[in-house]
Amino acid sequence: MSITDWFRAREDKRYTPVNGAGPKADVPEGVWTTCDSCKRIIYEGELAASMRVCPYCGHHFPVPAHERIAQLVDEGSLEEFGAGITSSDPLEFVAAKSYVQSVSSAKEKSGLEEAVVTGRATIGGHPVIVAVMDFSFVGASMGSAVGEKITRAFEIAVSERRGIVFAIASGGARMQEGMLSLMQMAKTAAAAKRYRAEGLPYIAVLTNPTTGGVTASFATLADIIFAEPGALVGFAGPRLVEQATRQKLPKDFQSAEFLLDHGLVDDVVARGGLRERVSLVLDYLMRPGGAA
C-alpha cells in the first residue's frame, strides 16, 4: 500500500485518529511508527534515514544490531566473528515459557543468532573490534554465549592490537542460565582488565537500556563512556529501586543526562554525531598503524 493509498483509505473511514491506541489498527505494520516520546507519527522510511531518531523530538529509538554497525563503522569494513556461538540450555530452565522457546523466538524475531554481534572493522580508518548488542534478543541479556563473544572480542583485540568500540544495551545477566550467567560478569571483566593492560583504547556507547550485570561488568570498564540521549543506564532497574526504597524517583533518574550530572559518563552524544566522536577519540588514543 502506498502512502497516498493509505491516506485515502483513512479518509474513507471519515474519522481522525487522535493520540493513543486509535490509529494502531489502521497503520500497516512497518510503515508508520508512533514516537514513544512525542507521540507523533513518523514514516518508517524517514526514521530509517534519521538513524532511528525522531525528527520531531530527538527521541532515540532502538536500533537493530546490523543497522547499528552500519551507522558506526567504515562502510563495508565489518568482518564478523563468533557468529556460530549460540545459547544452549544448561539448566534445562522451564517456567511459563521454556528457555529454549525464548531463544528460538528471539532468533526468529531478530534474525540474529545471539544478543550480540561481534566483528573486526575499521572506524575512521582505525582497526577496531566492535560488539553491538540487540535488545530485541532476550532483552540483550548476558548468558554464556554473550559472555564468550565479548571475552573473545577483548582477546582478539589484544592479539591483533585493535581498539574496542562496543554499542551496549542489556537487561542484565540472563536469568535462565543462572550462575553461569552471573560468572560471565567476572569473565568479561577479567578479559577487559587484560585488555586494559595493553595500552589500547576501549570506548563504550551505552544505549537504551543498559542495566544489571552488564552495566556492573565490562560495560563500565571502558576508558571512555558515551551514552545516547535519554538512555536508561543503571544497576537496578527503576521499578526495583522504587519498590525497595518506597521513594519517588528523581526526575530523569538513571537517564544518560542524570549520569552525566553525577560524573559517571564522559558525555551524552546524539546518534547522528556518534561515529565522528568515536573516530576522533580513536585518533587521540590510537597511534597510526594500529600500534598503540
Binding site: A216, A219, T220, G234, F235, V241, P250, H262, L264
Partner: peptide, 16 residues
Amino acid sequence: PGIEAEQRGQAWAIAE
C-alpha cells in the same frame, strides 16, 4: 538498589 547507590555508581563500583 537505592537512589543514592545509583547516583554514586553502584554498577561502576561493582565492575571495578
